[in-house]
Write a protein that binds this DNA or RNA. Structure first.
Lengths: 148, 148
DNA sequence: ATTAATGCTATTGCTTTAGTAGTATTTAAT
DNA sequence: ATTAAATACTACTAAAGCAATAGCATTAAT
């Protein structure tokens, strides 16, 4: 039950882009540095976000990435789905043939409920929520240091 | 975000034991057959449940397994924990060193919320709930067949 | 002593994950 | 036009985790 790095990094990338709406676009190099993600690995994160239509870019020398929609319209579930086709904590939710007893199975119903709870949570928060929260955290004073 | 087979099978084993409280104990062979789990793989499932104190047995010729507690006192989270030491959807929740920015990270807080939702759901259902539900499903009439 | 059960540890094949590598393409600036 | 600085794409790889198998040891009723 782990969230993989593509989704985790993907969310962070989206937050960074959301916090820089004003600019024309942010370079991959810049994102890699700020988010401490390997430049090359970021290739794949960006590819996923792009093919899902969450971010856009123009190729060439002066380009960079930006969000395609208002971040209040993008939920974390959207980012999750950019890297995972469908959310299913057990296979029998999406593949009837994965188990003989898909119908009349108390555990299947239970896992389905878990799935629903998870999807609901992921859909309840937008990139804008996270970006706002991150901005707050960044503005809070540093930890107090006492000099003797 | 998959539930692994050990947890899934583990829950089914627990339900089977819960539904057979009256008997002295159920043989591994019987569980394997009823639940369609490889006998050998069941070794590991049972070992996990046993070392967590959820089931007990006496070795020897006539033995079998039974629950150690009333199934109303056993949640699915207990079974989950029998195979996963601690519930953490991202490492930074349990290992401070896994990321530089554990504090002041909006995403960390978000994943922590996801984690909490999961734990809450897993703790909300007991083995008794599932066993009762399974008994109901088993008693419902077969699918109707119409003869012309 | 035999038999039928559980108990334990190691191994294996497979898939996924996380990341690297290399090269091609695009376009602004020169 | 050429170059430089960005993105775009595809393949590869090392390591870890997952699901299951294999083999032998131990226990206790008969």
């Amino acid at each position: 039950m782990k969230i993989n790095t593509k989704v985790r990094y993907g969310v962070r990338v989206m937050i960074e882009l959301a916090l820089n709406k004003q600019k024309e676009g942010i370079y991959q190099k810049e994102i890699a540095k700020n988010q401490d993600i390997s430049f090359k690995y970021l290739d794949q994160i960006i590819a996923g976000l792009k093919s899902s239509g969450l971010i856009s870019t123009v190729a060439g020398k002066k380009s960079g990435y930006r969000l395609t929609r208002d971040p209040v319209e993008i939920t974390v579930l959207d980012v999750y789905n950019a890297f995972n086709p469908e959310f299913a904590v057990v296979d029998c939710l999406t593949d009837e043939n994965s188990c003989r007893k898909t119908t009349k199975c108390a555990t299947r119903d239970f896992w389905e409920g878990l799935n629903t709870a998870l999807v609901k949570y992921l859909r309840s928060t937008t990139i804008n929520d996270l970006a706002k929260r991150q901005a707050e955290l960044d503005q809070e004073p540093q930890e107090l240091i006492f000099y003797i």
